[in-house]
Design a protein around this nucleic acid. Structure first.
Lengths: 346, 346
DNA sequence: CTGTTAGCGCCTTCAT
DNA sequence: ATGAAGGCGCTAACAG
């Protein structure tokens, strides 16, 4: 029924092994023979059987990419960049590798489940993106799983995620970025700053928040715990948290959001409350997603090189670039000062 | 070295066949036996070999998703929704299916290449998203490829893509949406409308543009060809096209953009030109991506139910929902009137 | 450079 | 309800 390698071999009058060699191109084959084989492949419209090939060779052309949610540009951009680097020569059968994108929704259980599924597929590599959940038990389970993957020959790379044993890590400098952002606001003269943080248990949330607090402390600004509100990393959380912050302290002059999406929600809440940005309240985000520049006024934020980091993670995962020394690199963020922040009202 | 099914069988003191049956759960096994097997699996930390399993069973747990670029929320949202529906029971070994996301960049060649790669993987299903390129030769090659996939047992679903033979299609009503949008502007009193279209050869571009022209014709507004500019589906194209349109006709009072991203670029260009929205020039987009509502003023656009359509495509691809009658359904868009459109200046 | 020979690890009739 | 046996399609030594 379906055409197999043996059929091709018969038609080209060579052995199956030779056909395999031509297809994989990792072995010398006479030009004339190759020609004949390729013609037979074409005539028979033969398509290699991936599973069979993977079974025999004990490797596959699949690369796993774990994200919270591809619908979120933060992850979509990284996934896209990773993917752009996993193709190319070096692999089996044409060097084309497929990206398996897994939406974990940030759930530790799903992360583990997907890693097992990728292990089952004998994935060539796995890239985990975004912050991790802080939970001892889970961290341990995760570490064990990553170790097993590594032992099975799957390269593991963390992208925008804090370092972990047994994995190469490209970590974003969330701490430093958060710090510089708040320093910027303090320099502008702000003293009453509201902070809309992400979910409590995530590393990203904690690091950005710690940077913020450090900047406050360094400037001798007292950190009023009532001015920090936690919520999810989405627009609605930003909207509601802003209303809450305004309720708690109508005199605040700036709002720092966990990320750009949250910041947009904050802007909407401020507008709906009749407050001008930045005349009445300054707003800052984090990430510098594409839409940040189109906010009105344009959003002051910390630019993370998502695309560059993703591409690099992809290359490392493919063994096309050396891992950073010690297996860990910190990717800095860049403060982007735009129109949404200004001097506080008098 | 690596634990195999036989190892599990030995430890549980049953035959490999029994272990297989327990793992796949599609065959009666005594509760006590199952118990023993599962314990052995656990103790040995056994992980099924996907390729071997796929080879023997002649099916895989992979589902292909073709997109232009996951970094674009338009595609990211659909990919995310599709993915959310491909898991669940019904499949092999736990029913978890993996999504293989393929960035085609809109290139016909890459589309074909990825389809071959998915065919090679014996993918359980493939969902193609977004508009198609209009090109006879390519359409034919594509049709042939889809037919082969279908013949090999891979379910093929088109999502937000015009119908094609041998595939179930959920098509967006780009034509109708484009038409209603322009009708809206005409009703507001606009007569000089600039149109920023997408790339020439794409179905999405053509359908939206035709809807626009039809609305113009119906209202007896002459369609000045100089007021239509083609460009890519990105912000920069919108920016540049807007400057070009303003150059060609400074008297225009409205700009209709190919999509929301392009519309943001248009807004930026207008602001930079010192023009107010909508007092001087109205702007409209298409898609209603999440950021559209946060534009200032909020963007009038046509809402496409990307998430709903993606979810439905995913269910159909998994055989969990009946395909629409005739294999074709048209998904309507909804006109969202917001602040970026208003009456033309006097 | 090419053919021969064994599996890779699992599923699935066919018996029992 | 369980076991035995063959083969899924390909690759990787090993010869030649």
């Amino acid at each position: 029924m379906t055409v197999t390698l043996a059929d091709v071999a018969a038609r080209a009058q060579v052995s199956p092994a030779t056909v395999s060699r031509v297809l994989n191109g990792n072995y010398p084959v006479a030009a004339s023979t190759r020609e004949r084989v390729l013609r037979a492949v074409d005539e028979l419209d033969y398509v290699l059987n991936g599973p069979a090939s993977a079974l025999a060779a004990a490797t596959s052309d699949l690369v796993g990419i774990l994200v919270n949610d591809v619908a979120d540009p933060f992850f979509g951009i990284m996934a896209s960049a990773i993917q752009s680097e996993i193709g190319g020569p070096g692999g089996r059968a044409g060097g084309e590798r497929l990206a398996v994108v897994c939406n974990t929704g940030g759930s530790p259980e799903r992360e583990l489940t997907y890693l097992t599924l990728l292990q089952r597929q004998r994935a060539a590599a796995v890239v985990l993106t975004g912050g991790a959940v802080e939970n001892g038990a889970h961290a341990e389970a995760m570490g064990a799983k990553l170790r097993k993957l590594g032992a099975a020959g799957t390269r593991v790379v963390l992208c925008g995620r804090p370092p972990a044993p047994d994995a190469v890590a490209l970590a974003f400098d969330n701490h430093g970025g958060g710090q510089r952002l708040t320093e910027h606001l303090i320099e502008l003269g702000h003293r009453r700053l509201g902070y809309i943080a992400g979910p409590e248990e995530r590393t990203t949330t904690r690091h950005r928040l710690e940077g913020h607090r450090e900047a406050l402390a360094a400037a001798g600004v007292k950190d009023d715990p009532r001015l920090t509100v936690h919520g999810r990393y989405d627009r609605r959380a930003g909207y509601e948290a802003t209303l809450e912050l305004l309720r708690r302290d109508p005199s605040l002059t700036a709002i720092v959001a966990a990320n750009d999406t949250v910041a947009l929600g904050a802007c909407a809440a401020l507008r709906d409350s009749g407050l001008r940005i930045p005349e009445d309240v300054s707003v800052a985000g984090f990430d510098d997603l594409p839409f940040a520049i189109d906010a009105v006024p344009a959003l002051t934020t910390v630019r993370l090189p998502l695309s560059e980091a993703g591409a690099r993670a992809g290359r490392i995962a493919m063994g096309r670039e050396e891992p950073p020394p010690g297996g860990i690199a910190t990717v800095p963020g860049e403060l982007m000062v735009r129109g949404s922040t200004g001097a506080p009202r008098a």
